[in-house]
Design a protein around this nucleic acid. Sequence first.
RNA 1: GCUCCAAUAGUCCAAUCGGUAGAGACGAUGCGCUUAGAACGCAUGCGAUGCAGGUUCGAAUCCUGCUUGGAGCACCA
Length: 878
Amino acid sequence: MTSERYNARDAEPRWQRQWDEQAIFVSKNDDSRPKYYVLEMFPYPSGRIHIGHVRNYTLGDVLARFMRAKGFNVLHPMGWDAFGLPAENAAIERKVAPKAWTYDNIAAMKKQLRSIGLSLDWSREFATCDPSYYKHQQKMFLDMLAAGLAEREKRKLNWDPVDMTVLANEQVIDGRGWRSGAVVEQREMSQWVFKITKYSQELLSALEGLDRWPDKVRLMQRNWIGRSEGLLIRFALDAATTPAGENELKIFTTRPDTLFGAKFMAISADHPLAQAAAAKNPDLAEFISDIKKIGTAQSIIDTAEKQGFDTGIHAVHPFDPSWKLPVYVANFVLMEYGTGAIFGCPAHDQRDLDFVNKYGLGNTPVVCPEGQDPKSFVITDTAYDGDGRMINSRFLDGMTIEQAKDEVARRLENELRGNAPVGERQVNFRLRDWGISRQRYWGCPIPVIHCPKCDVVPVPDDQLPVVLPEDVSFDKPGNALDHHPTWKHVTCPKCGGSASRETDTMDTFVDSSWYFARFTDPWNETAPTTPAVANRMLPVDQYIGGVEHAILHLLYSRFFTRAMKATGHIALDEPFAGMFTQGMVVHETYQKADGSWVQPAEVKIDVGGNGRRATLLATGEDVTIGAIEKMSKSKKNTVDPDDIIATYGADVARWFMLSDSPPDRDVIWSDERVQGASRFVQRLWRLVNDAVELGKAAPAARPAAFGDDALLLRKAAHGALDKVTSGVERLHFNVCLAHIREFTNTFSEVLQRPGQPAADLAPDLAWAIREASQILVQLFSPMMPHLAEECWQVMGQPGLVSEANWPQIERDLLVEDSVTLVVQVNGKKRGEVTVATAAQNPEIEAAALALDAVKLALDGKPVRKVIIVPKRIVNVVG
RNA sequence: GCUCCAAUAGUCCAAUCGGUAGAGACGAUGCGCUUAGAACGCAUGCGAUGCAGGUUCGAAUCCUGCUUGGAGCACCA
């Protein structure tokens, strides 16, 4: 029996070295076993790993280790999403070169990642900022350009006139740039886009087949793609009222049935008609410039007060030449969606209703809910968007919404103006093309040359990669690449004249849209992928990452995979067969009386009669316990993985991360629970050491029969094995851990029972103890691999537990001879009956009805029905 | 604003199909061990499953309406 505590600080680096030296996590592309590709979203090298990374990689690691034990050729690689804005911010603020900053961060974070004990194949590591990676990305860009999947397009962007840079929506705070404080302008700029919209329908339809993705994520993507069926209607304009004799306004609507409820037309500030009208109307021009200041973020546009400007232009109702509708420029109409123009039916659309209520245009309900008297049906503040019958709509009256939509479409399709129909059925998508141009230095250069004569010229293959220059300065605002004295000046590959390089770089989402494919053969110097290898190793069987990537990253990757297929780099459509979105790690916040935030490590928590109380460790000063929030530097509610690993070891951190909360939900960091995990590690260590002593008496051969204790233990072991095996496959790690704990409790009880020297132990029990300890160690080995190796060693097992095969379940042990059923009368529990597992329904029914409690509850009433749910319940209906 | 998610014991959470609300943990209390504490061992679970309705023999689970908390919304990654 050992009295020594398990020393993680000593054991963990030792086992990490062993794994490393024996290269057991390196997967070979010529391995003939079935493959299993586990991937966690690769990190941005910010400098230090975050506790959220520990959770993400632990989840993946458990699965990777489990599948390895199950006999799969597991691919579990790691790399770095290394381009992006923070490196440039560091360059500006701390005068360090982005490249040096990035690679230093990678080195630091790699060291941290290694300390977690992850079963990663580091031989495949790369950073997206390595020219050996992005040269292939540039090649694929050119392939996509040739295939018509990349184009130039005008886009409206947030422009900071002082920093001379485009801003993300989140960098625009109250209409001003986050760093400069300058009022942000909306500027139209020429951008490179990927034609993701060519795949709108396919990306939507294929979601059906992604049955190992969370419904939530599929729904988010479905909404993002936003397919809607509707009608394109050409409204005639009263040319006398238009700025330059325009005579038509095209709108898209999904509600053509409500056409007789129309009160106004609204067009986007960017609509050509608005632009033309503004040219002749300074007030309108000012209005347009005002509403453009609010920014491009959807949430801001939607929550801003509805504003409109009557242009004086009139549109003509398609079913009534005498019906004129005023045309407004409105701040809630987007040029990017549909045609940038709508007709407003206030009674049945909340935005339109808010608008007319502000400008006094009134409303006419045209859909009346079933059972409501049309005469008394009025709309005041809340639009009605439910079902009903058409009213106030001439020839549509009495129809359902669907019939009315159809009738309007039919009539307008058949009505010609000029030589085109007035209406046309159309499918519209909300999805826009993917703008990839960034006016930034630290990104993958877009490999094209702008020639005054030849226009856009692709960089020839033999000149790839277009490498980022390193001698750049961040003294001036704007794009450092643009300011470089020589880099952009080149000769045109076509005509030989002087030309200039594209100085925009690619969105970092491009880098992360194919890294999973590169991992399958990162050694290929001549092509992005080796198709034979990529096609065999892909798709990723289980991808794991934060839900914040549920839309963009995953959708872009799905598109990019199709684009790679179209350009011959890969032969599949869907990159991720299984997707899992993990929750965040959150923590309480602490605040001093003066409002300043305090780190958890500085706070002492006392639990008393009237709840929890916090004081400052240093001074004893009272601290307010605030909301539980996502860990953030500004609120100081962070926990440093290095501290945790130094104090408790990686296994404790891993076990804590996996316990309690389901992986897809947020987990609250709790020191008490971390200590609980730490105590459990020691308990397992003692248990295994005790079991080793007792198991010494075990015969080599399996005994023919087992006594009660041995059988109890074996049932607990194999029951746990069964539950953990199926639980890990479904990523229900918190439940798996509970089953391991449960098994451990039973194991301890059995071990305490003999209470005698090992030599006297019954051979069958000793054998069962040895078997149970092997199963136990293997069960927790994916979660706490270091402790498991240490236990495996004291058990005298050959080799590494990380390389051992998953134990075989003996199903016979899981079958019980009898089963206890709950007996209900009219849905209320009245008793229990225990019957043989094989008992038939009449026998069960008779046993249930024979219970005194059942007779009493029935109170002489006849039995109307008996419902028997096998192995669960008997319900007697009286 | 739009779209979506969640809510079970003091706390974190279990509960294949709609079938006994309790697996596991944290905390608390008591006992044992101990000079004492830590550690260790043992014991202790009444919550109308957020609220109001509905469907059903039967609802934590399905439906409707609310309340509260959270996520995403296109140049952060």
